[in-house]
């Protein structure tokens, strides 16, 4: 709170996560400002969930993490003890998951699951917490809250459970909410409601939102800024407009092209091949074997080239000396 509005709420540099032989995250740097929605996009196995778990201090025990310049406001999560992490989670950062049915305890009443953080973090009495739960559920547009709070997860629909999870996550008014594929399991109409709710809460509380998704439609609806991940690293980052209208990395371009749209097109330009095996060392650009723009120099690791304000691409095509600078000549077009 002591910081100026321009400085990020969360900043981390060169995050590396290794689980046994797998290098799940290979040098990710992120910044999220208060009230901002940053979307982390990528396909399964690209390390986006592992990045989120690192930020929550929830990595599996055998995982090894390293990072530099890790700030959360004035806090330094890099040197937290287990106890400090526990305090940090819930109060400062909260997380919601793709599948609320498995994230909630099936044998506990809905109300009790939301009271838990309130009693633990905010030291409320049972009575106070109960009232707060009802208020929260009503805020999530769950009618008949007092009655609903006494029900069990199986008595709720998927969309309602996602609201319950959001209510539990927001119980202690965290300053950053990490949402990992929050609407992937939901119908489009319910998805629209949950997204609208998240957006409203973000504006209302000036809360930062880290939205992890593979759905570019959801990104376009929600994100201020977007970071695209591939094989454990960020390959392109910029504002939503920059990413969608001035795409600067071949992977982002291929990903965009492979999504069918409501306007009819011909054959979908699918991305051939599969992502690299993160157990072996990746020399050069990780996307090279699947890239329509690949050049000889791509065997060497590209730097992260800045294009314009806040827009970066990890592609040799943006090297100042590249003869055909930029995209637009490849097969993906």
């Amino acid at each position: 709170m002591s910081q100026s509005p321009e400085s990020p709420l969360l900043a981390i540099r060169d995050l590396q996560v290794r689980i046994g032989p797998v290098r799940a995250v290979r040098g990710v740097s992120l910044e999220v400002r208060a009230g901002e929605c940053l979307s982390l996009v990528g396909e399964s196995g690209c390390g986006k969930s592992m990045t989120a778990m690192s930020l929550m201090g929830l990595l599996p025990r055998q995982a090894q993490l390293s990072a530099s310049d890790w700030h959360f406001d004035t806090l330094r999560p890099g040197s937290f003890s287990a106890r400090q992490w526990q305090q940090f989670r819930g109060e400062q950062v909260a997380m919601i998951f793709q599948n609320p049915m498995t994230a909630l305890n099936p044998t506990m009443r809905i109300g009790a699951q939301i009271t838990e953080p309130l009693r633990a973090h905010r030291g409320m009495s049972r009575k106070q917490a109960q009232r707060e739960v009802e208020r929260l559920l009503e805020r999530m547009s769950i009618t008949n809250a007092a009655y609903r709070a006494r029900q069990y997860p199986f008595e709720f629909s998927g969309g309602m459970l996602q609201r319950v999870m959001i209510a539990a996550a927001l119980a202690c008014e965290p300053r950053l909410l990490i949402a990992d594929e929050p609407t992937t399991a939901l119908d489009v109409t319910v998805q629209a409601e949950v997204l609208a709710l998240l957006d409203e809460l973000r504006r209302e509380r000036n809360m930062a939102l880290l939205l992890i998704t593979h759905d570019l439609g959801v990104v376009a609806r929600m994100a201020d800024r977007v970071a695209v991940m591939y094989a454990g690293e960020i390959v392109e980052e910029g504002s939503a407009e920059q990413l969608f209208y001035h795409t600067a990395h071949p992977y982002t371009e291929a990903l965009r092209a492979s999504v069918p749209t409501l306007s009819h097109g011909d054959r979908l330009p699918a991305i051939a091949g599969t992502p690299p095996d993160l157990r072996s060392e990746i020399g050069g650009c990780a996307f090279m074997p699947r890239c329509a723009y690949a050049m000889d120099i791509c065997r060497e690791t590209p730097a992260y080239y800045p294009l314009e304000a806040g827009h970066c691409s990890r592609c040799w095509r943006w090297h100042p000396d590249c003869p055909q600078r930029g995209l637009g000549a490849g097969d993906h077009g």
């Binding site: 489009v188 629209a192 439609g217 959801v218 376009a220 609806r221 999504v259 409501l262």
Partner: peptide, 22 residues
Amino acid sequence: QTLLAANPVADPQLERQRRGSV
């Protein structure tokens, strides 16, 4: 119509225009 309006499209400007139009 409701389904189509709820379906997010990969175009930030269009999405911004549509915001709240469901």
